[in-house]
């Protein structure tokens, strides 16, 4: 076993996980807001994505991991089963590896919550670009999105659809399916 897959977990899983979750909760409740999360690192993943996986994934969440270098780390720290795109609760990777969005579970009309969450690794994350409106946003927010057209198609399916956690370095922002995506 390599040291890299054994290390990089939260030093104090209960408390660090609580703080990381509050940042993710804040970001999901306020789409477009960029927050930072600390305390985790994984080979091949941003620190933010590593923190998301430690906070939310475990033996109950099949993960579609499009980053092979992180597979052993994920197995050790989360025990999450591997899944293909159609059977996953979480999918992790760069946009080009995760797209197109068709195969992922989007929930059902009776249970829209049974949809995947995409953890998208971005080269950078800035409060510029697409104009976002909707629940959690006071007026308008701007956020650099990986593929606004595909994400508009996702938003049209509300209440079904995918929810995204965009990661870059130690920062993340969320795009729930409830957010309306305007121009730019």
């Amino acid at each position: 076993m390599q040291a890299a897959q054994l290390s990089g977990g939260f030093a104090d899983p209960a408390r660090d996980g609580a703080r990381a979750f509050r940042a993710i909760l804040d970001a999901m409740a306020r789409p477009g807001r960029i927050v930072s999360v600390a305390g985790a690192s994984a080979p091949g993943l941003s620190d933010a994505a590593a923190a998301v996986l430690l906070t939310l994934c475990d033996a109950d969440t099949p993960v579609h991991l499009a980053v092979p270098e992180a597979a052993a780390w994920l197995a050790f720290h989360c025990g999450a089963p591997h899944a293909d795109k159609a059977g996953c609760a979480f999918a992790v990777g760069q946009w080009d590896a995760l797209a197109p969005l068709d195969p992922y579970p989007v929930g059902t009309p009776d249970y829209p919550d049974r949809s995947a969450t995409l953890v998208v690794e971005m080269a950078s994350l800035t409060a510029e670009g697409s104009a976002l409106t909707g629940p959690g946003i006071d007026g308008t927010a701007n956020l650099s999105l990986p593929d606004p057209d595909a994400l508009r198609a996702n938003a049209v399916r509300f209440p079904l659809g995918l929810d995204l956690i965009l990661c870059a370095g130690d920062r993340l922002a969320c795009l729930p399916r409830s957010t309306r995506i305007g121009g730019a």
């Binding site: 993710i24 909760l25 999901m28 409740a29 939310l56 829209p112 919550d113 949809s115 969450t117 629940p135 959690g136 509300f158 209440p159 929810d163 729930p176 399916r177 409830s178």
Partner: peptide
């Protein structure tokens, strides 16, 4: 909770 926030 995260899914709940995504579908208010």
């Amino acid at each position: 909770l995260l899914k709940a926030l995504a579908v208010p």
